[in-house]
């Protein structure tokens, strides 16, 4: 009987033209997503030298890989139609990059190997986007595709890193940035230029309701940084700022890291109102 009724109703409905007004999720059309992001920077690790990754362990540097990156997003949106929504995403990603690994030039004649503690990177994103569904869903509920085009800036976190120089003449002690004058520190924070990139975003987003105003939100985001991925090293020759070479190389490392970190999984909550 069930199957018969199924056939009957679907058959009858086939012949009915009907378009729905969007009354929202239980009458609510605005939504706020708060999401936590996580990713395994596999590609970044693959194309960098993990031997150059260190973590501070007291006053010593021990090898450490950049294993897991995190972040958060706040997304405010509006379901304009049952299957089309508009939203604005703001958030930050927290990751680390390896210090450029084997050489840097202080002047025309000298270079050193640097063992540098993993450099923390903070990326801030601003992405207007729209969401759509391929079926007759009821946004913001259910599976949706998100497409966005926005802007992201990445800068390194200014903190008291631990590092060590080694060259053919001497091996320096392992020191903090605070130990000596700024001129001797590998990264010149003042000269570090924030990495600014346009980004394209695609996300597959599933919002599963848990109450009439709250949903669990999860999915995967794919981000493409628009622009050329730089070489790993920046060389500074005679007369140059002795710290510029390393700082610029770190800029490149950050940009490269961004280029390789294109996929994030996320989970969070959606408030519907």
């Amino acid at each position: 009987m069930k199957s018969n009724i199924l056939l009957i109703v679907t058959l009858l409905i086939t012949f009915i033209t009907y378009s729905q007004n969007n009354n929202g999720y239980y009458g609510k059309r605005f939504f706020l997503d708060i999401e936590g992001l996580g990713s395994f920077p596999m590609f970044s690790n693959l194309f960098s030298n993990p031997d150059n990754g260190f973590e501070a362990n007291g006053l010593s540097l021990t090898h450490k890989k950049d294993n897991f990156n995190t972040g958060f997003r706040i997304n405010f949106g509006y379901a304009a139609k049952r299957n089309l929504g508009l939203s604005f995403e703001f958030g930050q990603d927290y990751s680390s990059v390896y210090g450029p690994d084997y050489e840097m030039y202080f002047d025309d004649y000298t270079y050193s190997y640097v063992n540098h503690e993993l450099i923390d990177v903070r990326t801030t994103v601003f992405i207007p986007k729209f969401e759509f569904t391929t079926s007759k869903a009821l946004l913001p509920m259910g599976l949706s595709h998100q497409l966005g085009f926005g802007f992201a800036t990445s800068s390194i976190v200014e903190k008291d890193y631990l590092y060590q120089y080694t060259n053919y003449q001497f091996t320096s002690p392992i020191v903090h940035y605070d130990t000596y004058s700024n001129d001797l520190d590998p990264i010149n924070f003042e000269k570090f230029q924030t990495i600014k990139k346009f980004v394209l975003l695609y996300a597959l987003n599933m919002r599963t309701p848990i109450t009439k105003s709250l949903m669990i939100n999860y999915g995967i985001k794919y981000t493409i940084n628009i622009g050329k991925r730089p070489n790993e090293y920046y060389y500074s020759y005679s007369g140059g700022d002795p710290t510029l070479s390393y700082t610029k190389s770190v800029e490149n490392a950050v940009a490269r890291h961004r280029g390789f970190s294109f996929m994030n999984a996320f989970v969070g909550l959606t408030f519907v109102f």
Binding site: T10, I16, Y18, N23, T133, S135, K136, A137, L138, G142
Partner: peptide, 29 residues
Amino acid sequence: KIENGVSYYFKDAPKKLQLGAHMYDIFKS
């Protein structure tokens, strides 16, 4: 007579809240 008919196809599990949300939309209309 058939007064009205709606057919939805969506990529989600048919849980109580999900179905209820669609039904709310229909009832409201």
